[in-house]
Write a protein that binds this DNA or RNA. Structure first.
Lengths: 142, 142
DNA sequence: ATTAATTATGATAATCATTATCAATAGGGA
DNA sequence: TCCCTATTGATAATGATTATCATAATTAAT
């Protein structure tokens, strides 16, 4: 997601960028493509804003998610992870390696025929999330 | 999933069916296709085993999941839901209605080409989960 | 600029889902 | 029956998240 688009979304939401919020957002921008937990964001962001509190991190991550600057996803591990939105298409495609836990993005969108099918049945598709559980090439033979 | 197959999985796992475990399993069998939280299972199962404790429910649900009798899924609401496995193919396809919250199963499997693509890149696909966020026909016009 | 009103923050308490602990109990086999 | 092990329910502990609240920072009005 471009900085310009981020900026636009924040303006639309009338969201002031305080130092703390800037620190959180910067961490997310510097970790494009990665999926960070709130605690991980806190640890990183404290390098920029040393007495940042966890409550502010949660508040900011949730707000940024509501502005569609971040995705908030539960990966079956009892907590949420946050990720900078990559485009305007709301596609969430992930591969999780069952050995090393690495979360890898995949770009392909091969779901349109399935969605068409649902729409023919009267649904209005808004978004989707696809998680593939796999062994990544590096872990496959271990 | 057939009772015969359930029985087989429990035997393979050397899992004794106590009254409490039976109550939990029966609730799941009677709610085929539905996605219940631990608290919901507790409430239902207490009709059969009145002083059942929540800890036993969690223990049983987790064990049954490990035997692949149940699926355990996080639907982005801060807790897990459990569901009787429907077949042996490990497919998790759901549509969540954004209005009424209803979780609807979909049977189609249109992901094989995507998985083939990943396998060509060296991944070993083990399982996947697809969640579609939509408005169901009944909620579409509200 | 000074003050008043609003908003944001950090510390911490509260909550919710889940897991761990542990004493009491229930089964199964010698 | 008695012993051994597995299971249970109550409850404490944990981890993630949310709510509360007094204080600090920002903005708006004068």
């Amino acid at each position: 997601m471009t900085d310009r688009l981020i900026w636009q979304r924040l303006e639309e939401g009338n969201y002031r960028l305080t130092q703390q919020r800037q620190a959180v957002l910067d961490v997310m921008r510097e970790n494009r493509g990665r999926h960070l937990s709130a605690e991980e964001v806190l640890a990183e962001a404290r390098k920029k804003a040393p007495n940042l509190g966890i409550a502010t991190v949660y508040r900011t991550l949730d707000k940024l998610s509501s502005f569609e600057v971040l995705y908030k996803t539960a990966f079956d591990e009892g907590k949420y992870r946050y990720e900078l939105c990559e485009d305007e298409h709301h596609r969430h495609h992930h591969v999780i390696c069952l050995s090393c836990g690495q979360i890898i993005e995949i770009e392909e969108d091969l779901l349109s025929s399935l969605e068409k099918h649902l729409e023919n049945k009267g649904f209005e598709v808004v978004d989707h999330q696809l998680i593939i559980y796999a062994k990544c090439p590096g872990c496959k033979c271990k």
